[in-house]
């Protein structure tokens, strides 16, 4: 019984870890711009996988909170977490974000796809109507996005700090490259 329960976590956790790694692979440009070495690249990819797990835990917490607030249901995070983690499956295609020009659009589409799967998976878990499950899923998803945005803004800059630490790089982006080319320099 315990073995079955343990194995039950393998699939959702693997889905989330692979999703995080694939999404980071899609953002390979940032690794290349910072000239991150091979081992640091592998480490960054692995940490991104774990980062997705953490995001899943936060989203599950928010789903529990929204479920309680909107539907009056009180569910344990451990019950919700497998569904939330499996809903990260679309991010397996995160490597497609690498595609030039269309990549950022694909990233947005994957986010919406994740929301749709979350909605579908939460319905039986919450034992709610389609509308109720959608309200919970969408609110939790939106709250996760907002939290992510806030964490990326100064002074927190969480993702940037973690990236710098793990990749041992300056965390430069294309924008930094352009800004460093000041006007009118000559030699």
């Amino acid at each position: 019984m315990e073995e079955t329960a343990r194995l039950g976590w393998v699939v959702p956790v693997s889905v989330a870890v692979v999703a995080g790694t694939s999404l980071m692979l899609g953002q390979w440009a940032i690794l290349a711009i910072n000239r991150v070495g091979r081992w640091r690249t592998l480490l960054t990819l692995a940490i991104s996988g774990l980062g997705m797990l953490l995001t899943g835990v936060i989203e599950a917490l928010l789903v529990a909170l929204c479920g309680w607030m909107l539907l009056g249901r009180s569910l344990r995070v451990a019950v919700l977490l497998p569904s939330v983690l499996i809903a990260f499956a679309p991010y397996w295609l995160g490597f497609l974000v690498l595609l030039p020009y269309s990549g950022p659009g694909i990233a947005r589409a994957l986010k919406v796809w994740h929301l749709l799967i979350l909605w579908a998976l939460l319905r039986p878990v919450l034992d709610a109507s389609a509308t109720g499950a959608l309200a919970v899923a969408a609110t939790a998803w939106l709250a996760t996005q907002v939290l992510g945005l806030l964490a990326d803004r100064p002074p927190i800059r969480l993702r940037e700090r973690v990236f710098r630490l793990v990749s041992d790089s300056a965390g430069w982006t294309g924008r930094d490259l352009m800004e460093s080319a000041a006007m009118g320099q000559t030699r």
Partner: peptide
Amino acid sequence: LVAAGLVAPGEALMWWRSGRLDERLIHW
């Protein structure tokens, strides 16, 4: 097409990676 798209940025990024970190970004 997807495969071609995925490898398309490779040349530019490899060119950038081959440079030295302390080099000035653009110079005559």
